[in-house]
Structures are given as C-alpha cells and as structure tokens.
Design a protein around this nucleic acid. Structure first.
Lengths: 191, 191
DNA sequence: CTTTTCATGTCAGTTGCTGACATCAATAGA
DNA sequence: TCTATTGATGTCAGCAACTGACATGAAAAG
C-alpha cells in the first residue's frame, strides 16, 4: 500500500484558513459549518471537535498572544507604574501583530461586519484584562488599582488597534500604543 | 360574552419575568425558550417577536438606562473635564439602579453564571461607551480623548458595579463610582 | 357596516451543536 | 512478529434556537 497517512495533517489549521476565507467571501452568517468543513476536507463533526462553536475558529490563535502579554508583564520590573507596565506588555504584543498586518486586517474586517463576532472579541479582551490584573496582583499591586490599570491598558490597546487597522498610511503600532497611553493620561489628569 | 381582552396585556413584561425566574431556578442553558413562553402564557414564536434571541430578554430594559446616561451627559455643562462629566452621568444612573438592588443582584447572578450572557453584557457596555463618546464629540471633545474618556468611564462603572453587587455591607453606589474614579486617576497619574 | 390593522398562533424548515458508537492506521507491548 | 491499545476521524440520530409564510380574530378606523 501507499505510505500516505490516513488523514492530512493539521486539520485545525485548514479549518481556520477555510473559515476565514469563507467568512470573508460571503459573510459569517451566510457560511455554514458544513461548508467550512467541506473546504477543509473533514466533516462537520470534526470542526466541533477542534472549536467550541462557529465563532471560536477566528479566536483560537489569540490565546498565544494573551500568553505572550502575560509573560511579558510578569517579567517587567515591579518598579515601574502598573499602567506603564501594562502598556509596555501590550506594546510588545503590538510589535508581533505588526508582522502579519494583512491577516489582522482581513480578520478584523470579518469581525467588524458581525455583532456575534464582536461579542466574542469583547469577552476575549475581558479575559485578557483579567489575566493582566492577576499578574499585577502577583507583583503586589492592590485592587482596585490592578483591575483599573489592566482595564485602562486594554482601552489603550483597543483604540490604538482601531487606528492601526483603519488609517491608510501605515503607522507604527507600538508607537500608536504610546500615543494612546499619553492621551489617556491627559484625559484622566487633574483633580 | 365576557369583556376580557383577547390576550393578556404586557406580554413582553411577562416574558422578561418568566425568563429571569427560570434562568435563576435552573440556569440559562437548562432553560428552553418554549418553557419561558409557556410560563408567560404565549407561544415560542411570540417570544422571538419581542426579543431577538434567548439572551436579549435579560437586556431589553438596559436600553432606557443608556438613554438616561446619554441625556444626562448631554445636559452637562461642557466646562467640566470629559472624564468627570462621564463619571457624573454614570453616577446618576447608579443612583437609579440603587432603587432596585435586589433585581440587579438576581440578574447579575444569572449573568455571572453564563459566558454567553457575559458576552451580551459586554457588547451592551461597548455600545454604551460608543454612545457616550458620540455625545462628548457633539460637545466639542476631540478624539481620541472622547473615546478614551468614555472607555475609562465605563471601566470605572464596571469596577464600582462589581463592588456594589458583591460587598456584603450595602454601600452607596454613586459613592463607589466616585471612589473608583479617584482610583483610576491615581493609577494613570504620572509622566 | 365594512375595512384595515395588529398581536398572536400554527407549521414547516434550516442550522448550530451534542452524544453514542464505529472505523482503522499507528503505536506499544508481549 | 503478533496482538492490544490509542487516537483522530467518520456516521448517525436528535434537540433546541431561530426564521419565513400564512392564518386568525378582536379592535380600531373609516
């Protein structure tokens, strides 16, 4: 017999790619899981073995980015102010994202076009905020400072990300983070 | 014949009440829309005429609160700092919520127990943030200051709300908002 | 008295998602 | 080398969320 494996490897990756393509082509709602599975060469049941639901296929990769931010924050000297430490970690992640801007743009276009996907994105960001706050607490930052620094850091990220994706002239993402942080400080300054 | 109307009035209210009860009793996932409809004395189809999906029944009432905050913010003199104006509007809404704390507590317990409901809550808060930012812009506040002030105000609300719901000794909600705002200012101070 | 409106019911159908069981290559162990 | 086990996948049946199309009949409008 042949020495071909029984199944093509990397079913998860094929499903991610097929889903992003189809969501881009005809929209999230107009795409059925059966179609994604077919394009990836597996059955619908296999899709749901890799991803909890139809939305999750777009967010599975984000897990490693969260891991990276938490690790970066954890290795930041506790001497700096919490908000600056969070902004630095977020900025480092921005540097990574910058290397695959076309992917980010395509993915974000899909998400922007569908409220259900926006919901999923928001809860991922909330989970990230919680993880960052936990890390700050481990470094001795008290509440509500830890929660607020994390929330504020995420707000800074969100606003910088939006500009990075939408502005025509490609700007440096980490630089946008720094500017966004400065704007937040300006807004919250004063008694 | 009787002078009874063909249908009991306030189907929407009965559905809201039945849903909150059932979600509390057996949990969100373990409750079917058919059960909610039955308890409210209507059919499943009628449920979906009032609410876009199974989650929305818990959030329909929040629309008027958003309207209240926007109106309050819009009538705030543009002389105060944006973040303070947002905090004031949010604090006024907190005063309203305080009058029905048991309802808020029960509703929040249901939401806290289910990720799908948390997603819906997050997107409602994001929508609120957008609305507040729009209002600030109408008052002449520029971006990213407007977006960031709104986001920061929502973060302040979220953290104060959590404490208001969870702390045993009932604290004054608007006061918690003020404290949360002060903490945010402390965290973002410097540079 | 007739027409229209409108809230609701009825029904059939699609799709997301799950549990239970079958298949069979690869791997481990005797 | 033979056999048992594992693990990724397929197959199938079924529930529940949600939708479109059409029917009903009281109340409002004319």
């Amino acid at each position: 017999m042949d020495d071909v494996a029984r199944w093509e490897p990397n079913a998860r990756g094929r499903l991610e790619q097929a889903a992003l393509q189809l969501y881009s082509e005809r929209g999230f709602e107009q795409t059925t899981v059966a179609e994604i599975a077919k394009r990836a060469g597996v059955t619908e049941r296999t899709f749901f073995r890799y991803f909890a639901d139809k939305r999750e296929v777009l967010f599975w990769g984000a897990g490693s980015l969260q891991e990276f931010m938490v690790t970066t924050l954890a290795s930041t000297p506790a001497s700096s102010a919490p908000i600056d430490a969070v902004a630095a970690a977020v900025g480092a992640a921005a540097g990574l994202l910058q290397e695959r801007r076309p992917f980010s743009v395509q993915r974000q276009a899909v998400i922007a076009a569908n409220p259900e996907l926006q919901e999923r994105e928001l809860i991922k960001l909330a989970s990230l905020s919680t993880a960052l706050a936990d890390t700050l607490r481990q470094q001795g930052v008290r509440d509500p400072a830890a929660s607020l620094a994390a929330e504020a850091g995420i707000a800074v990220f969100r606003i910088a990300f939006e500009r990075w994706i939408n502005e025509a002239n490609q700007q440096d993402f980490p630089q946008l983070i720094r500017e966004s942080l400065a704007a937040l400080k300006a807004v919250t300054a004063g008694r």
